[in-house]
């Protein structure tokens, strides 16, 4: 194809998206669209998969059967969300093996929030409330994104995510209304998860390099700063209801803006964690890679069994 022909196709393509048409896997698409989507969808899938690890840490130590069943179901959902997203990503012509390879070698990123440790049971409450809360705000607009398989996967994910946040908030509520020690656990968890949760929306708009392109392709509907403000405005009253204090001395209602003003985010910490120097980056990758490697014999055995069954069927049919 000549450059002019490609330019023409690109214009038609951009127009289709502007008209709210969906792009399906076999449609022509610019290489940059394909690459950007592989990057974003796979990062999203990896985040779901790695996101199981901090919570998995507490399944065996959940304080009651009710809490344990809910946490198990939540972690199972996250595995499911990872699988929906990997499938959507594979429709763009990358294999599951390549995707895993990129995660395991560190070539692909996952959400930095999962590089923080879950040191007390209250962290499970804070993750559901804050981390899933932030994820919902990021994800809801993606139900309308331009790439069909991604949008469909996100509809399913968003439907399931609301239970995750509610179970987290219920844990926080119970602890906040409990003994002095329990309330202190809840406050400590909020102290540690608040700022990393705000960082989940990504760099400030001034620093964000992909925003304009992502807006055009409907990978984003609002900017990072707008989403972050939305999260703060809806979460602060929830903290008040718990009787907990948001760890930001500069947090103040701004009557004029109809929003909360908030303090400066420590972006050095954010970039340190992104670059691999967070508290649990190594631990998470080791856990993930060893789970994959230790499962190799199971995958091989399943294939060997399937081959054997298929051959036996052939023999039976031939005789």
């Amino acid at each position: 194809m000549s450059e002019k022909e490609i330019k023409n196709l690109e214009e038609i393509f951009e127009q289709r998206i502007a008209n709210d048409e969906k792009i399906e896997p076999k449609d022509w698409m610019p290489e940059k669209y394909r690459k950007t989507h592989i990057r974003q969808i796979s990062q999203h899938a990896h985040s779901e998969i790695v996101g199981m690890l901090p919570e998995g840490n507490w399944i065996t130590r959940a304080p009651s059967l009710r809490r344990k069943a809910a946490l198990l179901a939540k972690v199972q959902d996250e595995a499911g969300h990872g699988l929906y997203l990997y499938s959507a990503c594979e429709t763009l012509g990358i294999s599951r093996e390549e995707l895993y390879e990129q995660l395991h070698t560190g070539k692909a990123k996952y959400s930095s929030i999962f590089n923080y440790p879950t040191v007390t049971w209250a962290d499970i409450g804070a993750i559901g409330w804050l981390v899933d809360g932030a994820a919902i705000i990021n994800q809801v607009p993606l139900c309308n994104t331009s790439f069909g398989p991604y949008a469909r996967a996100m509809v399913r994910v968003c439907k399931e995510e609301s239970f995750h946040q509610r179970q987290g908030y219920e844990i926080m509520l119970t602890l906040s209304k409990g003994t002095t020690e329990q309330k202190a656990l809840a406050q400590d968890a909020l102290n540690r998860w608040w700022w990393p949760s705000l960082m989940m929306f990504g760099p400030t708009d001034a620093e964000s390099v992909h925003t304009e392109q992502s807006m055009k392709w409907k990978l984003k509907r609002k900017t990072n700063d707008e989403l972050r403000q939305q999260f703060i405005d809806q979460t602060v009253p929830q903290a008040d209801l718990l009787g907990l204090t948001v760890p930001d001395p500069d947090l103040k209602w701004n009557e004029e803006r109809g929003s909360y003003d908030f303090g400066a985010i420590d972006w050095d910490e954010f970039w340190q964690v992104v670059k691999g120097h967070g508290p649990c980056n190594k631990e998470r990758m080791n856990a993930r890679v060893s789970a994959w490697e230790n499962g190799a014999w199971v995958r091989d055995a399943a294939i060997a069994y399937a081959d054997k069954q298929a051959k036996a069927k052939e023999v039976a049919q031939a005789s």
């Binding site: 199972q76 499911g80 699988l83 929906y84 499938s87 959507a88 594979e90 599951r96 469909r152 996967a153 399913r156 995958r299 399943a302 294939i303 069994y305 399937a306 069954q309 298929a310």
Partner: peptide
């Protein structure tokens, strides 16, 4: 509904149930 990986048809059905 979507897709998934499995070694054979029986496993595909079981995984589909879970996913």
């Amino acid at each position: 509904f979507g897709s998934l990986h499995a070694a054979d048809a029986t496993m595909a059905l079981e995984n589909a149930r879970d996913v």
